[in-house]
Structures are given as structure tokens and as C-alpha cells.
Simulated assay, not measured.
Amino acid sequence: MNGAVSQHGSSRPRVAVVTGGSGGIGGAVARRLAADGTAVVVHYAGSAAKAEAVVKSVTVAGGTAVALPGDVADPTEMTGLFDAVEERFGGVDVVVNTAGIMLLAPLAEMELEAFDRMHRVNVRGTFVVSRLAARRLRPGGALINFSTSVTRLQQPGYGGYAATKGAVEAMTLILARELRGRDVTVNAVAPGPTATPLFVEGKSDELIARIAAAAPLERLGTPEDIAETVSFLAGPAGRWINGQVLFSNGGIA
């Protein structure tokens, strides 16, 4: 893969940083981008073993991947991560922000500490990484942030979480306009219910079946479904998509 010609005619491989790359969606994104010939940096915050498992799955398939740790909300740590990526690979072409947490409760009952935790990772973390991406992405690059279809579904219990993702959408759409002339696209992906361990945890089979039936396609999304959307936005076919939120949800919203 290292000798592959990039989509922009260069002999150098494209390089992607995937935050939250040890998670269900993040891991699928890392594997999909690697299959496209991209060298992938699998970022993780707490699960080195899961990140290394993603790296192994990429390398076994013939791709290039490394795992690097960092707190997405800490500008010093994330600057260090970007420095390490540039030193190892020469630059960054794609940044995908899958890192995020979801804590659910009705607004009247949600603890402020829970809201602050989500805000720190989902909003501040996206801001810190997006700012670095805006400064460092090479021409032809792509920044892909993550929102949620709950911003349209307005489901009770999701108010605090959806509020953080509304902030992510606002930052994403404005940053796309601020990067005029840079040849860098900025978009957000908004998944619907997706069959990840995080989604399944704590839900009964009956509830999962009911959620799956809500979409016209009558199934849950898979991490691979979401990864295909990211691959499109990161690749040559998605270059004319900029400043958009793509709802990858099977028509549920």
C-alpha cells in the first residue's frame, strides 16, 4: 500500500487520523479507509488493546496502521499526536472525528456533571481536533466530524447528547466556509441507530427489534454502513460534497 498512487496524483499514500478508532464505528472507519489504500492512525483514549486489534486487522489485510493515544479535549496531547503523525508519515490528508460519548437522561433529571462530560468530549474534543485539522490538512484533504440523527428525531432522553451534536454541526458547517481556497472539504456524518456494542448495551431484544423496525429498510445500521459514507467523503467521489451533514440512517429521519 505504501507505493500506491494517491487520488490526487501523488506517489505518496494518503494519511488519515481516526479519533475514537478503537470503537465500533471508528474501527470500521479505520479498516475501510485502509482498504482504500490510506495509511491510518487509530487514535484511542483508554483502550489500547482494542486499538491494537484494529491495527492488526488492518495490517493482516495488507494495509498500514498505527495506534496512538490521546485525550481529544487536550490541545497539548492532540498537538503531540498530529506532530507524531507528520513525523512518521509526512502529513495528514483525512481527519475523522468518531470519538464521542453518549449519556442519556431527561433534561430535568440529567446531572450537570454528565452534561459537562459529554460537552468536553463531543464539543471541546471536536473543536480541538478540527482546529488542528484546519491548520494541518494538506490540499485535497477532508475533515469528517460526527453528528447524530437524533438532532432530527427529537427523542426524549437524548436532549443533552443531541445538544452537543448540534454544536458539532454548527462548527462543521461554518469551518467549511472558513477554509475557502484551501482545497479541503469539511462535512459531518449523522448516523442513525447503529449496531455497535455501545448501542446494544442495556437494551432488551424487544427494544432493539422495535428500533430496527422504525427505519423503512427495517434494520439497524452497521458500523460498515457508516464507514462507507466516510470513505465516500474522504475519497475522490466526494470532493464536491462540502459543508454538509449526511444522514446515514436508512431513512429513519
Rank of each mutant, 00 (worst) to 15 (best):
L68A: 11
V94R: 06
D74S: 15
D74T: 03
T59V: 15
E113H: 02
L103N: 03
T76G: 09
G100Q: 11
T64I: 15
V92C: 11
M102A: 15
G91P: 06
R88L: 14
A65T: 07
E77Y: 00
V121R: 02
R131E: 12
F115I: 01
G100K: 06
V72M: 09
L104H: 03
N97Q: 14
G90R: 10
R88M: 10
R120D: 02
G91T: 01
L107C: 07
A108P: 00
N97L: 05
G90T: 13
S130W: 05
G62T: 03
A84W: 06
G62K: 11
E77T: 03
E111D: 15
S57P: 01
E111A: 15
G100L: 09
P69C: 09
D83Y: 03
G90A: 12
V66A: 12
E86Y: 08
L81W: 06
D93M: 03
D83F: 01
R131W: 00
V128W: 00
V92M: 05
D116P: 00
L81T: 04
A114Y: 02
H119T: 14
D116C: 03
N122F: 04
E87C: 02
A73Y: 07
G63L: 11
V72S: 11
N122V: 07
N97E: 12
V66P: 10
V60I: 10
F127H: 13
L112R: 13
R120W: 03
E87Q: 14
V92D: 06
E113T: 14
T76R: 11
T126R: 02
M102T: 08
A105N: 10
E113M: 00
V58H: 10
F127M: 12
A67C: 11
N97V: 12
F82D: 01
G100F: 08
V121A: 04
R124N: 08
A61N: 11
V92I: 14
D74G: 02
G80N: 04
A84S: 15
P69G: 08
T79C: 00
G100D: 09
V123D: 02
V58R: 10
R88V: 07
T64D: 09
A65W: 08
T76F: 01
R120S: 04
I101Q: 07
E113P: 00
A99D: 04
G63Q: 09
V94M: 06
P69V: 12
E77W: 01
P69H: 12
F89I: 10
L104W: 02
L103G: 00
R120L: 12
A65G: 11
M110L: 15
N97A: 13
M102P: 00
F127P: 03
A84T: 13
V129K: 07
G70W: 09
E109L: 05
D74I: 05
T59L: 07
T76A: 15
E87A: 15
A99P: 08
L107R: 08
E86H: 05
A61E: 12
T64F: 07
V85Q: 10
G63D: 12
A65V: 12
E86P: 08
R88S: 13
P75C: 01
V123Q: 03
G91A: 05
A84K: 14
L103K: 14
G62E: 06
G100C: 11
R117H: 03
N97S: 14
V94L: 09
M78P: 02
V129T: 15
M102Y: 11
S57Y: 02
E86M: 13
M118N: 01
I101T: 13
V92Y: 05
D93R: 04
